[in-house]
């Protein structure tokens, strides 16, 4: 770990100013990903501004019926919240499917969005990696491909985003609230992540020094019957090969409302809008579920080593929609 100065910020604006003012500065919240990467010198901040105690640890009702989740809420607190469990079960399930209980006590909601890829070449500083060192190469492209992205990837980077929580948030059209050097703003989760084609070294549209303060979950009634399904090698404590967050409302045998997002397949939580469009108004049948999944995955450009993810994602989407239709 490179030596660094540790500062406990006293208020949000001075924390933002401190980080924004130095390119080698970084916010510290839960630390579960940052400290991990610092040990391997994948990231080397020289100033850490601790904001864990400053950012909100509460979950509040929004006037429109949604919830505002403080960025400092731990992953476990989010999953255990009664309102979240009832109104957005896919969020609870997604969070609980990630990492381990003790890691989820450390990890914050804000940090979960910003966790870096698990690509082994990104995590090994002796390997070329465009995300870590722009202009070197993408080692995964011709290397170990099993965990890599099948959607939205680029020649310059095929890494995938490891979040489970983010997948459910993408399905719900959650909105991130930030405060940065230019003031406050909101960013839909589905617009948070940048395409790797635009330079994989920057994961998100956040500016340096911009801090996530909360995430707003809009009122989505159909989410009350939503689910999250994670397919992975180990039964627990493993990253997703493919995951699906979905909600479904069927009336008169036809799909009235549907939300689908995929994890483990792209550089970001992947909102499956093509599949959703394909389903709206159509009969909730196995054949239509399959056709919708295939329509979404038509854009997939798998590598040799992760081609299985295409049929796996298809089957998992179909399986999920079947379950939701049966429950509806």
């Amino acid at each position: 770990m490179k030596p660094f100065v540790y500062e406990r910020a006293t208020d949000v604006s001075s924390a933002v100013a401190a980080v924004a003012g130095r390119p080698d500065a970084s916010f510290l919240a839960g630390g579960s990903n940052l400290v991990d990467l610092m040990k391997m010198e994948v990231v080397k901040p020289e100033l850490l501004v601790d904001i864990r105690h400053l950012i909100s640890h509460t979950i509040e009702e929004l006037p429109g019926g949604g919830l505002r989740i403080g960025a400092g809420v731990s992953n476990n607190e989010l999953a255990a919240d009664r309102r979240v469990r009832r109104r957005y079960p896919m969020v609870s399930q997604a969070v609980l499917a990630g990492a381990s209980f003790q890691l989820r006590n450390l990890a914050t909601v804000g940090g979960n969005f910003l966790q870096r890829t698990r690509c082994p070449y990104f995590r090994d500083v002796s390997m070329p990696c465009n995300k870590r060192e722009p202009g070197t190469a993408c080692s995964a492209l011709e290397g170990h491909q099993r965990d890599m992205a099948i959607l939205g990837a680029s020649e310059s980077c095929v890494a995938m985003h490891p979040s489970d929580m983010g997948v459910a948030m993408a399905a719900l059209d959650a909105v991130i609230r930030t405060v940065g050097p230019d003031g406050e703003r909101t960013i839909p989760v589905n617009e948070l992540y940048r395409s790797p084609a635009d330079g994989p070294e920057r994961d998100t549209v956040l500016k340096h020094g911009e801090l996530i303060t909360a995430v707003d979950l809009p009122d989505v009634p159909v989410a009350a019957t939503s689910r999250y399904r994670k397919v992975r090698d180990r039964a627990s404590y493993a990253f997703a090969l493919v995951s699906v967050a979905a909600a479904l409302r069927v009336r008169g045998g036809a799909v009235r409302e549907v939300r689908i997002a995929l994890g483990g397949v792209a550089h970001k939580p992947w909102r499956a809008r093509t599949a959703e469009r394909h389903l709206i108004g159509r009969p909730a049948t196995e054949a239509n579920f399959r056709a919708a999944a295939e329509a979404e995955l038509a854009a997939a450009e798998p590598l040799k080593g992760n081609a299985f993810k295409v049929p796996l994602a298809r089957n998992t989407i179909v399986s999920m929609l079947r379950t939701l239709a049966e429950e509806a």
């Binding site: 540790y6 406990r8 510290l28 630390g31 850490l48 864990r52 003790q102 890691l103 006590n105």
Partner: peptide
């Protein structure tokens, strides 16, 4: 009161 991984926790942040 909460179980955590102490290897990913910076000591200075736990004053």
């Amino acid at each position: 009161g909460l179980r955590v991984n102490s290897c990913l926790t910076l000591a200075v942040a736990r004053e």
